[in-house]
């Protein structure tokens, strides 16, 4: 049983290293909506404000909204990186996140060593690590390049390795950023099949995206964020039909990864 319940979930980023007090004053002087002073008179940016929603098994949720709407922050909070500053978050089920393909990669180490590192990061046991290594070797198609330092790879090969490692397991809840759509064409077909498989086996998918194509193809529910708040939430077509005209144009014309 996989389930995500957010209840008045709030995340704020204090701006600790603002430096001069004058900058703080200047920011405060403009009546900004999301930058404010909290009770300890710190300057904070409200990244997520009072989010309440429930996502159950079988739901494929697209998070849409402009840059800075809070999509990535929400993904990271669901992944367990940020603790709620206010409210409550309950996440039942194993969580896998595809947020940054390069995170934790050592570019001076070989591909093989990076696979080992990844197994350690994920807390795999010896048998699982072995299975990961085999899966990545066969999927990435990097062959003898796995014995070379990752920094000597082309960017396409680096992506292939990162992608192969990231998509090797099958979590209940899959959190995704849309980075993987930047893969080169030869890899795309293979990558898409793999993603489809991963999405199909996940009980819950939450994907942050700018692309209508991704939303329509993968998702049965859309949550639209604006300035850290949920402004719309419902079945895909309903939410899309309620989109403001200029935003629909933006999303339709945006190519994946753009």
């Amino acid at each position: 049983m996989a389930e995500i319940i957010a209840d008045a979930l709030t995340i704020e980023f204090p701006l600790y290293h603002l430096g001069a007090r004058s900058l703080k004053k200047r920011l405060m002087a403009q009546a900004l909506r999301r930058i404010r002073e909290d009770s300890d008179s710190r300057v904070v940016v409200s990244a997520l404000r009072d989010l309440t929603f429930r996502i159950g098994s079988g739901e494929r949720v697209a998070l849409i909204g402009r840059n800075g709407a809070g999509k990535s922050t929400l993904l990271r909070t669901l992944a367990g990186i940020y603790d709620p500053v206010g409210g409550r978050l309950s996440v039942q089920g194993t969580v896998g996140s595809l947020i940054d393909p390069g995170a934790g990669m050592d570019f001076w180490a070989t591909g093989r060593e990076n696979i080992r590192l990844r197994a350690w990061y994920a807390g795999l046991n010896e048998a699982q690590a072995q299975a990961l290594s085999e899966a990545v070797t066969s999927f990435s198609g990097l062959g003898e390049f796995l014995e070379l330092p990752v920094r000597n790879y082309s960017s396409g090969m680096q992506l292939r390795l990162a992608f192969a490692m990231a998509t090797a397991s099958r979590p209940d809840i899959l959190l995704m950023d849309e980075w993987f759509f930047t893969a080169d064409a030869s890899f795309m077909a293979q990558a898409e099949a793999r993603l489809q498989e991963m999405v199909a086996s996940a009980k819950i998918l939450v994907i942050a995206t700018h692309s209508m194509r991704v939303v329509r193809r993968l998702c049965n529910r859309v949550i639209r964020l604006e300035a850290g708040r949920v402004v719309d939430d419902g079945p895909t077509e309903e939410v899309l039909s309620r989109l403001p005209e200029e935003m629909r144009l933006e999303l339709e014309t945006l190519q994946p990864g753009g």
Binding site: S97, G123, T167
Partner: peptide, 17 residues
């Protein structure tokens, strides 16, 4: 794949444990 072993299922700002 990073499974978030360390984040407990429920994280509540009112009861941070």
């Amino acid at each position: 794949m990073f499974t978030s072993h360390q984040a407990p299922a429920v994280r509540d700002a009112a009861d941070p444990r």
